[in-house]
């Protein structure tokens, strides 16, 4: 807990005051389900515009509940969620949809149109846009995920990777400022995982804010800048991804193990530190970084 406070204070200092800096502001959010289960307790989070954030935690930690509160599908029991300047309490899901796009878990449960094109145009049509604009947005979104050729296909007949991409395209067609992906890589093969994260990454590079919930730690370390660790409805850790994964002992509290490459890097770091005093390499997040560190270590 101490860790999380230190981290957020650091970030606070980096960012000048003023609400417009933030894509998402969560103040004292508590959420209790109708059955009486409190899934989120006093959550405070601020996500800057154009951040790429990974949210991790065990099943039942409150990740999906948090995302649903951000998108307005659930309204806070206590506290406020402000998305791109709008309080979710004062807005409908449909109104928020143009600000924040949400890719739900399991694509199969959210594809309902007979063709890919119709699926993707469903959102823009609901926004009552002119026909040519709808067409343009569909083209653009399908181009973004690389599915232009499959536009006439029956979505459930596509491969699992492509079905996930259809859902992402249909959310992108809303042109949201923030995009949230809830376990987008579950059940995907290696290629699928990296294709999906690649799409998210490009969206981020284009100046948007991205939040990803995933159990794939290697994807978190490779793609995100910041990591938020949820545990039993509270924020256990929050900080730069490298910083968060530098504390495996804290992560272990919530049964999260850093990716193997990070563990290998930590072992190497210890070995190097033992061999050469005063040498403190960074926490390794990717294979490339480990390679660089080994090369650096071998230099006299």
């Amino acid at each position: 807990m101490k860790e999380s406070r230190v981290k957020s204070e650091q970030r606070e200092r980096q960012v000048p005051a003023g609400g417009s800096e933030y894509a998402i502001e969560i103040n004292n959010l508590t959420f209790t389900y109708p059955g009486g289960f409190t899934a989120l307790k006093e959550i405070n989070l601020k996500v800057k515009r154009n951040e790429f954030v990974g949210i991790i935690g065990q099943n039942g930690a409150g990740k999906s509940t948090l995302l649903k509160n951000i998108t307005g599908l659930l309204k806070p029991t206590k506290g406020d969620v402000i998305v791109v300047g709008v309080n979710t309490k004062d807005s409908t899901v449909a109104d928020l949809a143009t600000r924040v796009g949400f890719v739900l878990q399991n694509p199969d449960r959210q594809l309902f149109a007979p063709t890919v094109e119709e699926e993707v145009s469903f959102g823009p049509k609901n926004l009552k846009l002119p026909a040519d604009e709808i067409k343009q947005r569909v083209q653009e979104a399908l181009g973004y995920v690389g599915l232009l050729e499959q536009k006439d296909a029956f979505p459930p007949a596509l491969s699992k990777g492509d079905r996930a991409k259809v859902v992402i395209a249909s959310v992108l067609a809303m042109r949201p400022e923030v995009i949230i992906l809830d376990e987008p890589t579950t059940g995907q093969d290696f290629r699928g995982c990296h294709q999906i994260m690649g799409i998210a990454s490009r969206f981020h590079e284009a100046g948007h804010t991205v939040l990803v919930v995933t159990h794939h730690m290697a994807l978190v370390t490779e793609y995100t800048q910041r990591t938020i660790v949820l545990c039993n409805g509270t924020v256990l850790m929050d900080g730069e991804t490298r910083e968060v994964f530098s504390h495996p002992e804290m992560l272990r509290q919530t049964f999260i193990v850093p990716p193997q490459i990070t563990q290998a890097g930590t072992d190497l770091k210890e070995a190097l530190m033992a061999a050469r005093r005063g040498w403190t390499p960074r926490t390794v997040l990717t294979v490339k970084e480990l390679g660089e560190d080994i090369v650096a270590a071998m230099k006299p």
């Binding site: 599908l73 949809a97 309902f112």
Partner: peptide
Amino acid sequence: SVVMDAQKLRAFRVFEE
């Protein structure tokens, strides 16, 4: 309800309004 959520998230207002 998941499908309805997915539709709401794409600005489909019918279930709400």
